[in-house]
């Protein structure tokens, strides 16, 4: 394992290049429009296509259109938590300051999108399955994910010393990541009321391509939108932390402006 330390060190150098808040803000400001506008465009196109132009399903009728909201939300709920877990590793191993700020900001956005996934799932389940909610493995594991998000949001803000909150929340994020494969494979491991995935890596999608295209557009749009919102919030958080440090030490203002959190 002689190569490991250099690899770890090299990864650390790579991540820390973007730990400098000034550099992050510059990069973020340049990246922001490239996320925001495509997100808006793709989401509107995907949802509009799904709502008005895609065909109705042969057995579900028009209620299949809920899919164009539900599936991207479900995917992002898991992806957002995976993002939290990545931030947790960066925070615990490399003590990356931006990872902590990003984790604070991903939490609420992820919780909102998980709530959207649960609510639209319920709205879809009532007319199709005949029930708002069942305790099958898929639905329950997503509900657990929602509570993990809520716990993360509370924990990261629970301490007077923010560093302790970051650490506790990072541990929770890593432990909770166990739920992600459970969500993904719940429909294969156990019999559930929820149907298995239509789109898999291994096989052809069991979905008409006239439904697949709007779904792909709205999924891409939602993902970019999620990234845009998280980026905007993280940029604001970096600026707020700089404002705090400027206010608390007005004399060192000039020296502080570059690299106070690096």
């Amino acid at each position: 394992m002689s190569a490991t330390p250099t690899l770890v060190a090299r990864a650390g150098t790579f991540f820390h290049r973007y730990a400098n808040p000034g550099r992050f803000l510059k990069l973020g400001a340049r990246l922001q429009p490239w996320l925001t506008w495509p997100a808006l465009l793709l989401t509107l196109a995907g949802l509009g296509w799904g709502l008005f132009f895609s065909p109705a399903d042969w057995q579900q009728g028009d209620s299949v259109r809920i899919m164009y909201v539900h599936v991207p939300a479900a995917m992002l709920a898991s992806a957002g938590y995976a993002g939290l877990a990545v931030c947790a590793v960066l925070s615990l191993v490399w003590r990356h300051p931006l990872a902590d700020l990003a984790a604070v900001e991903i939490g609420p956005v992820g919780a909102c999108i998980t709530a959207l996934c649960l609510a639209t799932g319920s709205l879809w389940g009532k007319p199709m399955w005949g029930t708002w909610w069942v305790w099958d493995a898929r639905l329950t594991s997503v509900l657990v994910l929602f509570f993990l998000y809520l716990g993360h949001i509370a924990l990261i803000r629970a301490f007077d010393d923010p560093q302790r909150g970051y650490k506790a929340a990072a541990i929770l994020a890593l432990a909770g990541a166990v739920d992600l494969p459970v969500i993904k494979f719940s429909v294969q491991w156990w019999n559930t009321l929820h149907q298995p995935d239509s789109i898999t890596l291994t096989g052809a999608p069991t979905m008409s391509s006239s439904m697949l295209w709007p779904l792909a557009l709205s999924t891409l749009g939602f993902s970019l939108g999620f990234a845009a919102i998280v980026l905007a919030r993280t940029r604001a958080a970096v600026m707020e932390s700089r404002i705090r440090s400027l206010l608390s030490s007005p004399r060192r203002r000039a020296g502080n402006a570059s690299g106070d959190a690096a």
């Binding site: 949802l47 109705a56 209620s63 909201v69 959207l116 879809w124």
Partner: peptide, 19 residues
């Protein structure tokens, strides 16, 4: 459209949360 209230509620909720 069938099931219109459910569809509208879903899209409305998505819009509200996104906004």
């Amino acid at each position: 459209m069938t099931h219109l209230p459910y569809i509208l509620a879903s899209y409305g909720l998505a819009t509200v949360i996104a906004l």
